[in-house]
């Protein structure tokens, strides 16, 4: 299956106190969004502006959002989630607390085969890795039960860690599991887009969905702007641009105008804390990326 991507996706950094420019701003946002109701208010504003896809980390707090959406299926029938897993801090903290072995034991089912592997009593085959991935992924996906999740992302720390290590087959395992178990399309978030694309192609993931920093400043576009522009021009993947404003370092109009001028951008993911900012971003995208505007106007009018 091939998911049709909306061209404007809503991100979640602002809800969890992530801001690359300022810790103060990040904390102010974390305070503002301490209740699910405050998050819902912004998601509602996004939906009313025609932005109906929420790309979110599998953070525990998202489950409250999922509950609210399940409780009002009529209102949210068009709404879709693009989960991004795993929520890495959870695992990193477990490793600090219990060590690598303890953390694996905590998150993996207590079956003979796993404990034999962890004791070093058994070699690890590919099917074992698949067997390990499945319960971990199920745990992350549990909160989205009954909701639409047409694309599921592997989160950037994990993607880039595996990419650096050269554990290429892990991407294939993730992609296969996403397709087989959740009937969704795999996506990959990375800070190293030019390096990731050939690796995904090598393991047979064609025309992949890759979400990466694409911004006028070149902020966290590893390998340099030029290498990033070169792979974008190749058109061999569906690029989702994130960090287009570089956490506010680029003025909105300048940022959107630039990113809409890049070749082969399939979608933009952006975060905002207020309805007015969401509407402003939608207006800018309508202006500089007219095809996207038509699509969203049709959606708002209920014709899609």
């Amino acid at each position: 299956m091939r998911a049709k991507l909306d061209r404007l996706l809503f991100g979640d950094n602002q809800f969890f106190g992530v801001n690359h420019m300022s810790e103060d701003k990040a904390r102010a946002q974390a305070m503002r969004f301490r209740d699910a109701a405050a998050v819902m208010e912004v998601l509602d504003a996004a939906l009313d502006a025609g932005v109906r896809t929420f790309m979110c980390t599998t953070h525990d707090r998202i489950s409250a959002i999922c509950d609210r959406m399940r409780a009002n299926p009529e209102r949210y029938k068009e709404f879709t989630f693009y989960p991004s897993m795993p929520y890495a801090h959870k695992y990193a903290n477990a490793v600090t607390e219990e060590g690598m072995l303890g953390a694996l034991r905590r998150f993996l089912p207590d079956e003979g085969r796993f404990s034999a592997i962890l004791r070093g009593g058994m070699a690890v085959a590919r099917k074992d890795l698949e067997g390990m991935a499945a319960p971990l992924m199920d745990a992350e996906m549990k909160m989205f039960r009954g909701l639409s999740t047409p694309v599921i992302f592997l989160q950037n720390i994990v993607v880039d860690l595996l990419l650096g290590l050269g554990a290429k087959q892990a991407f294939r395992i993730f992609a296969d599991q996403v397709r087989d178990r959740y009937h969704a399309e795999p996506g990959f978030i990375t800070m190293n887009m030019p390096r990731l694309l050939p690796v995904l192609e090598e393991v047979g993931i064609d025309n992949p969905i890759i979400c990466a920093n694409i911004n006028k400043l070149g902020f966290r576009m590893s390998g340099g702007l030029e290498a990033n522009e070169r792979v974008l021009r190749s058109g061999r993947f569906r690029a989702i641009a994130m960090s287009v404003f570089a956490s506010g370092a680029i003025p909105p109009e300048e940022a959107i105008k630039w990113v809409c001028g890049q070749p082969n951008i399939a979608a933009i993911v952006f975060g905002a804390s207020r309805g007015a900012n969401i509407r402003h971003t939608c207006e800018l995208v309508n202006r500089y990326w007219p095809a996207a505007g038509q699509e969203r106007r049709a959606l708002s009018a209920g014709t899609v």
């Binding site: 690359h20 880039d160 650096g164 800070m191 190293n192 902020f219 966290r220 590893s222 340099g224 370092a249």
Partner: peptide, 13 residues
């Protein structure tokens, strides 16, 4: 801010 100060690296983790 780091968005202006940080020099790009060839591989980011």
């Amino acid at each position: 801010s780091t968005t202006h100060l940080a020099a790009p690296v060839s591989f980011y983790l």
